[in-house]
Amino acid sequence: MQGPSIEFKNVNLNLGNTQILEDVSFSISPTTIHCIIGSNGGGKTSLIRCMLGQMPHSGDIKIKWGENRTIGYVPQQLEIDKTLPVSVVDFLTMATQRRPAFLGQSKQQAQKISDLLEEFGLTSKRNDKLGSLSGGERQRVVFAQAMVPTPALLVLDEPMTGLDVAGGEVILAAVRKFASDGGTVVWINHDIAQVNKVADKLTYVNKTIVLDGAPLEVLQTGVANKLFPTLSFNESSPDGDSAETTDIEVEGE
């Protein structure tokens, strides 16, 4: 699998009289984990929605696809009516097959869904109502749907919201595996320490591009120090085998 590369060139977005994005230009390399960070209301989700063709904008967003043009998408949160009679399996079925979910799944689809549920630790929840799951469990379900059919581009809009540590690790492992298999990941993420651990590249957006580059380079600049005053830098690797890597910690964590 070869994930796509994406190029944003002079992207502008106005909603009414408010300018949401101004002259945004940067690129996302194939087979990388690219994190987009920024303050609330800074235009991160709008930027992603422009990329997905959901918001009218000016400027160019070019996606260079390989053979696979599938996008997996994990929204920030799946707000649903808790009393809705839609089980975990129903949700995965309706998202991934054409046959009406109330008629059940084909054998092939049933196997795929079972595998997914196992991978994301949801086998015991398969027949539970989606609305009865905790926020973290539901987020894992939504993540699981994004993996079928196998995407080339994975777009994550703060998927860790509401996840506990164990749930977060499951998703983190899946994202890393996806990128190592050649997929491209675009990830809106607020957790700067996590960004430093997983991102190949980060872009800080606040209406326009404030920072763009590899985390270790970008986060040591003066601008980054102002944006993230709680960050500290340790000149040692977590495993202690090399002094060349810089580990970033957030005070209080």
Partner: peptide, 14 residues
Amino acid sequence: AARNLNTSIRGFVV
């Protein structure tokens, strides 16, 4: 009425 008794879409519709 069907919603009162079911947790799955199949039961709901049927």
